[in-house]
């Protein structure tokens, strides 16, 4: 399963996502880095990004952002265009 999340995170590298983890937490940010075990997301500003209602996430400091274990991911929400 982690392998699938690894592939998904690599594909959407650089995009803003909403990650739901298995503990009921929701993390929102832009994917900045993917390792075989973790995905890192950086906060996004107070902008409306496709109806996700992103608020501002502060206090993460610098760097890759917040790391989430791939094994803890339950779902990833994105936005796209469909025919």
């Amino acid at each position: 399963m982690s392998q699938q999340w690894y592939n998904v995170c690599c594909r959407y590298h650089g995009q803003v996502v909403r990650i739901h983890d298995k503990f009921g937490n929701v993390h929102i940010g832009r994917i900045t880095r993917v390792t075989p075990n973790r995905v890192y997301i950086a906060p996004v500003g107070r902008r409306n990004l496709g109806g996700f209602g992103f608020g501002f996430y502060g206090g993460w400091g610098w760097g890759w952002g917040f790391g989430i274990a791939l094994a803890a991911i339950a779902a990833i929400a994105l936005i796209g265009l469909f025919w």
Binding site: Q4, V8, G50, G51, L78, I79, F82
Partner: peptide
């Protein structure tokens, strides 16, 4: 971006 469609990838 506002005109895009949200979707969710589950396990």
């Amino acid at each position: 971006v506002l005109a895009a469609t949200p979707f969710t990838i589950t396990a």
